[in-house]
């Protein structure tokens, strides 16, 4: 699915002894470098992952022992209205918040990628919302902003002389938008990655372009953008995964309930409720694996497409 190379290096038929030796050394070096990850994976991840896969075919209430029940969990999912609801909420959230966040992060990073006085302060200011993250203070703050008598309505009424008293977080039609806004507001981490990516572009490209008399747009199209594609690709993949598995913001803002009327009941939140509120870990695990399939599919599509638009300086390892 996710691939770094197209051809497998393992095919060594008909190669000479010294070539095989070199290949063996290469394999050895590779495994030596990824050893920390492999050890961690086998020690701490593989068992929990396989266990959760096993749970998904059981009825397991955490307090007792899991009992195999075949594909019942998956069958029940089809009937479960809230399952579909949470899926819809998550798709809405992901499809709107991911592009918004990326666009904001991208353009602000471009704007701040200059050598101006005070630029570091700006960068910090725009990054700070991302570090208040999931604290309970955020929940209170968000309510104070979007309640019927909240700051947002006050500002609207003051600016436009209206008398708006919508409870933005209490209305099922608007509540998810406040969550999307919260996600967009916290674009700082993607921004930092874009900034780091911009800094990675070697200066001499621009110097050469200056000599050729290229204008700013020209430089952006032929230098900045192509060199940034690996980072854009990275942010896109990570935001897709983060968008579909969003939990903390939704949990904090609705106090874990998905209020109002499940309009902010994102998939991971529903899955959490099933596991720890209703004691249905089996069902919850089954849901988790459905999510893995969905996210995996989107990730795979983006990975497949990457060969046609992501530009790497080094086409191939070694």
């Amino acid at each position: 699915m996710t691939s770094l190379t197209k051809d497998s290096p393992g095919k060594d038929l008909g190669k000479s002894l010294s070539e095989r030796k070199a290949l063996f050394r290469e394999n050895l070096a590779g495994y030596a470098f990824i050893a920390p990850w492999l050890i961690g994976f086998f020690a701490f991840s593989i068992i929990p992952i396989l266990t959760s896969l096993y749970y998904s075919f059981t009825s397991y209430d955490i307090l007792g022992s899991p009992v195999l029940n075949g594909v019942d969990n998956f069958k029940n999912m089809v009937q479960d209205k809230l399952f579909w609801k949470s899926l819809a909420v998550t798709f809405n959230y992901a499809f709107i918040s991911v592009p918004l966040r990326l666009l904001f992060a991208f353009f602000v990073a471009l704007m701040f990628n200059r050598d101006v006085k005070g630029i570091r302060l700006y960068q910090m200011v725009y990054y700070i919302p991302s570090i208040v993250g999931g604290s309970i203070a955020v929940a209170v703050m968000w309510r104070r902003l979007f309640m019927a008598d909240g700051a947002v309505n006050s500002v609207i009424n003051l600016l436009f002389g209206l008398d708006v008293s919508t409870s933005w977080i209490g209305k099922p039609e608007t509540a998810l938008w406040t969550l999307i806004l919260l996600a967009t507001w916290q674009f700082g981490s993607s921004m930092l990655i874009f900034l780091a990516g911009l800094k990675q572009i070697p200066h001499f490209y621009y110097e050469a372009a200056d000599i050729d008399g290229a204008n700013r747009f020209r430089k952006f199209v032929s230098i900045t953008f192509p060199h940034l594609t690996p980072v854009i690709f990275f942010n896109l993949i990570m935001q897709i995964i983060a968008g579909f598995t969003v939990f903390t913001q939704a949990f904090v803002v609705s106090g874990g309930s998905g209020d109002p009327l499940n309009s902010t009941l994102v998939y991971a939140l529903y899955l959490y409720q099933r596991a720890f509120k209703y004691y249905e870990m089996g069902y919850s695990s089954a849901m988790a694996w459905v999510l893995v399939l969905i996210v995996g599919l989107f990730t795979a599509i983006v990975f497949k497409s990457s060969s046609s638009w992501v530009y790497y300086e080094s086409k191939e390892g070694n």
Binding site: F41, S45, P48, I49, T51, S52, Y55, I241, T245, F247, A268, L271, Y272, A275, F276, M281, S284, S285, A288, W289, L291, V292, V295, G296, T299
Partner: peptide, 9 residues
């Protein structure tokens, strides 16, 4: 490992 929700592991 990135995609699987933490709640179930």
């Amino acid at each position: 490992t990135l995609m699987i929700p933490f709640q179930v592991v």
